[in-house]
Design a protein around this nucleic acid. Structure first.
Lengths: 154, 154
DNA sequence: AAGCTATAGTTCTAAAATAGAACTGTCAAA
DNA sequence: TTTGACAGTTCTATTTTAGAACTATAGCTT
């Protein structure tokens, strides 16, 4: 499979993977959610090569996940800010953080704790059914072909 | 950064990314959740090269996400089955599917629909706070350093 | 005015990962 | 005895990534 075809597959997972399915992109997004916005800041906190950082930021802008916003004229400088489409990636990032907390921890405990401002408590993210509110488990879900399905499933 | 160090970073996202942060691994996991279990089945449905498929399956077994279970003696043949650790990746996969449904759809509609067996309805996955049950948004979450934090955040 | 620093990149070469195809080994069925 | 299914492994060519150096703009320092 060629990767430039991945975002046209009849599969929502493939299409998401086409955009955020590589290591650096996910780490860049982590920084975005931690309020990092500038080229140098991404570079020094991630130790990513400048070349790849430049590439990935362009791609995220192209897909509408980041906006490139000028913060200084003369010299022209820009920062990268999450769009709504980008903010909507939050559940993906949090699901990954939570899985890492649960299954990849060491004896030192969690690197970060998350507080929900609405209720004031430290929390874990939980995925529930939009209809009944119950916690979701893979085995309780049945998959149907939808209208956008062609030959490949997903 | 070297990728073999990524799973030792003091960051749960990095550690998760070290395991499932590449395109083929995520697509293989999609197939796992769609009940695919055998080498040939993965290969033909994904069009992945046999070399890489072999590599990725080994890695997923090594990290305890898949179990390699014999289903035939003479000739010895195995299938790959999600462990509990693997099943726990479901929220990540579903979050990606949902983002793709929302932001990467085309005029044909969704490729797949999901039915929750418990309530019988077609649903979307929603991420909520474990403490108060409210829907989570990035801006309502405050991040604290936890005990396992060293220098890098995440 | 000349030189240093900060920021945001681009360009180059070497190393690593992936694609694509062919090959191996085991056994069952025709 | 030959063919086919299954689960890989091995090989070369191409693409991607790493790592370092370089470019460009402008402010600040001496």
């Amino acid at each position: 499979m060629k990767w430039d075809m991945l975002d046209e597959e009849p599969c929502s997972l493939s299409r998401t993977v086409a955009v955020v399915g590589d290591r650096w992109t996910l780490l860049i997004l982590r920084e975005c959610f931690l309020r990092v916005r500038r080229f140098e800041a991404f570079q020094s906190s991630l130790q990513i090569t400048r070349h790849l950082l430049s590439e990935r930021l362009k791609k995220l802008v192209r897909f509408g996940i980041l906006r490139r916003v000028p913060y200084s004229e003369a010299p022209k400088r820009y920062e990268y800010i999450l769009t709504q489409k980008g903010l909507d990636l939050y559940p993906i990032i949090m699901a990954m953080v939570h899985w890492g907390d649960t299954h990849m921890g060491d004896e030192r405990g969690r690197p970060l704790l998350h507080e929900h401002k609405n209720c004031g408590k430290l929390f874990d993210p939980v995925m529930v059914c939009s209809e009944c509110g119950e916690v979701l488990h893979a085995k309780q879900v049945h998959v149907h072909a939808g209208p956008g399905r062609r030959e490949v499933v997903g």
